[in-house]
Amino acid sequence: MISMKEVWKKYPNGVMAVNGIDIEIEKGEFVYVVGPSGAGKSTFIKLMYREEKPTRGDILIGGKNLAKIKERQIPLIRRNMGVIFQDFKLLPSLSVYENVAFAMEVIEESKANIRRRVMNVLEIVGLKNKARFYPHEISGGEQQRVSIARAIVNNPSVLIADEPTGNLDPDTSWEIMNILEDINNRGTTIVMATHNKEIVNTIRKRVIAIEGGRIVRDEAKGDYGYEK
């Protein structure tokens, strides 16, 4: 599904963020990416949705090499993956429904398809009754659920999550994790960068630890492994 081979990333300011990463992630896996701040986690995640281009090496996702694709092919790659963030990245002027529908408008789906599918994913994340609300009218956890709905609305094969519980209280974080597990059970590969020790140690999944831009640990059903 996802395969990185000898991937290096050096930023224009000289920072070496990723130094030779090799990894294979199978279809349907759920993977935590852990590590101290500034270890290269974020860059690792950004490389996956082609926000950053590797300086060297190959990144294969769904048969496409992200290191070699042309700039104008990036949108097509992104349509096959969902991305969620710590800060949700919702559009404040659009309702919950519109925020999710937006991702389908972009790929020129028909109105009828959009309606059906959006209501469907809102049900999955448990927000069907809040479709008309605006982001500022709902809680942080609900906003994150909207962003998850948006991420999966186009049926991506990979969901990339960059600290999805970073801004949420513990109870809400568990709710989000339940939804992500649910999505994972439906066959979507999930790669999730996190600092949440409790979650990693409770919902046991494969753990990849990154330090100094390298993978220092890769365990199936691993633990968080850091004090904080």
Partner: peptide, 16 residues
Amino acid sequence: KREIQIMKLVGATNGF
């Protein structure tokens, strides 16, 4: 800018 960034994240082409 934010909207454009989000559009790009969900796979909007530059033309769109």
